[in-house]
Computed example of a mutant assay.
Amino acid sequence: MRIVLGLIFFLSMQVMAQAGKMQIHSEILNDDINLQIKLPETYGHSSDFRYPVLVVLDGSTQFEHIAANVGFLSSYAIIPELIVVGVSSNNRLKSFTPTQLEQFKDRSGGAENYRQFLETELLSSLGQKYRIADYHILSGHSMAGLFSSYVALTPDTRFNAAISISPSLWWDNNWLVQESAKLAVAKRTKPMRWFLSIASEPNEMASAFAAQITQLQDTLGNSPSVKPPSTQMLQWFDKRFPEETHDSTPLIGNVEALKTLFANWNAVPEIAVMPLKALKQFYHQQTAVFGYEFPLSAQQYNVYGLKASYEQKTAWGVEILQEGTKVFPMSEVLWDSLATAYDLDGQTALAIDASNKAVLLAKQSDSVFLNEILSQAKSLQGKTLQ
């Protein structure tokens, strides 16, 4: 309860993150593509910190709920803070299908071109405009789920993880399912983490999904969701949502996908705390699983620092939050949390200095936390008068 009362306001950060729209021209697709962008709310708190990217297919319908859930989950360090990019698709059938069918001649079979667009033109354009890290996740539903499955099985893809919600694996007589027997064991230079799910869909959708799971089990063994995490280069996870329909499943499916892909990623999910050195070692050890070493983000510094402070490891909390303010010097929340840690550690003068910095930054950014930050500042000033 002590942690809940101390952290609830700072961890439930529903601040309106920087968002925007942009259009890029694809030479590969010979088309103009509309994008929606949502940056982490901490993006402006540093000038050099880089964020992983989550590319959401069918962005016009799937972007908003996924971006909101990413913001919530990352605020509690359940998943990393991500730049979320919604990509609108002008020709879903052609873009998302890996083979061309006679009845859809010239209107299908463009998946490889679309993959090249995403991995070269899109990621390059994002890299020129935003501070993106070299870790990329792709999410797709239905026909877009077929495409994200195709990307997951492509050995030389630039994506590190893929989400396939109710994928249309039935396409072309289960073509991708059959191809997966050899693609799943193909040589890779980095790990791929692949989440697949199915809702209450009947007939060919369900049978193709079942066939894909059987194929993966036969080729790679049971998914890590059934046994301890695998170190194999293609790591797959599957879940079923029988109470969801094809239309409703993306909401819960993407949340469960992100939680599954980043299971055990949170270094301190409960009240057992770590010092800064142990936190960094923890994420260094995760590199073998993810193929990428995640640096501590602003939300993590805040979560881990406050937890340590409230669990009476105030020296640990101060150290974590001190480094957090160095990496994210414009974060009013981290400065305010550092003031809390100093106060709990009995360093009132330093707490007041940190609190004053938090107030200044909160006023400059018109922070939604201004009143709470001012309240702590007033409380700390009152201690000097006692």
Score class of each variant (00 low, 15 high):
Q232E: 11
L196Y: 11
W175A: 14
R188E: 10
A199V: 00
L216A: 01
K129I: 01
T120K: 12
D218E: 13
W194E: 04
A162M: 15
R193T: 01
V177W: 07
A186I: 07
D172C: 06
A206F: 02
A184C: 11
L123K: 05
G145Q: 04
F147V: 10
Q178Y: 12
R158E: 10
T154S: 15
L146R: 09
A186E: 13
K190C: 03
M143P: 00
H136T: 01
L169P: 09
T231K: 13
F209E: 03
V151M: 07
H141W: 11
W194R: 03
L118P: 10
F147A: 11
Q232W: 00
E179I: 02
T157L: 10
L216N: 04
N173T: 03
Q178T: 10
S139K: 00
W171F: 13
M192S: 11
K227M: 09
I163W: 12
N173V: 02
N173K: 15
G140L: 06
L123Q: 05
S180K: 08
P229C: 01
A152M: 15
L123G: 07
L123H: 02
L216V: 01
N174L: 04
F159P: 11
K187R: 14
E204P: 00
T157W: 07
A133I: 00
S180N: 08
E201Y: 04
S149N: 11
P155C: 06
A206Y: 05
A144C: 02
G127V: 02
I163G: 10
H141I: 05
S223D: 15
A144H: 05
M233V: 08
S197A: 14
K129P: 01
K187N: 07
A199E: 03
I132K: 03
P224L: 10
S225E: 14
T189G: 12
L220F: 08
